[in-house]
Design a protein around this nucleic acid. Sequence first.
DNA 1: CTCCATGTTTAGAA
DNA 2: CTTCTAAACATGGA
Length: 261
Amino acid sequence: MPELPDVEIFRRRLDRHGLDRPVRRTTVAAPDLLDGASPQSLGRLLKNHRLVETRRHGKYLFASRDGGDGWLVLHFGMSGSVQPLVPDEEPPEHACLTIAFDDGGIAYVAPRRLGMIGWTECPAAFVEAHHLGPDALAIDRDAFVEALSAHHGMIKCWLMDQGHIAGVGNVYADEILFQAELPPRCEAAALDREAAGRLHGIMQRVLSAAIEARADPERLPEGYLLPHREQGGLCPRCGGEVASVDACGRTAWYCPTCQSD
DNA sequence: CTCCATGTTTAGAA
DNA sequence: CTTCTAAACATGGA
């Protein structure tokens, strides 16, 4: 789940359930996910502080503590999420980190434990240090076209490279290319500036629609690929069977009829 | 048992 | 230096 739309939903959930109350207790059940902090140091950084602001860049989520002198950093890997803590109930299964208030709190849940829990003094510095490109929803058309036109290689791989654009992953890259009617292995340099500009608009429209749909494929608008992105799935546009092909080491699902050069 | 999965990093080959 | 490929990481589900 955790691509840009999913992380945006987690951000909003954290806004709703995780801000403005003093942290009483943090537990770290998966210390191996901590990057640059120990369970003790993280506990000390949060204890009796309040989280007051959230930001998202690509697939990374940041939450600042009061004073603005430090930010919790979360990355969700392949399976992570943010879930509320329900008072008087056990934390969710696979909770790697819990941040509890007197009443409620939030949990970072990751069944497959491929994510990261960290701390930074400045999200912008963190983004730079991790070589992340501009956020996919924030980048403007000209910057997108400029960056894309300098690239040789498969279009899908460029979209998924977090150093070029941050936030697009395997699933939404497929949706974006389906909406753009471009095959996943299409050469990026084959797009002229007009086509690249169109792709920019489609990317932002798809990501916005996914957020609107609460990152639930079943709630996406009619005519989207994702609900049919599986073996035997039928293209919502032409009714033909979808196909898969390898691109950048991942499975790309597409419609061979609607997405051809 | 095998294979696959929404991600990232690293090593090595062209 | 850029691009592509494979493997590794941890774990659950089909």
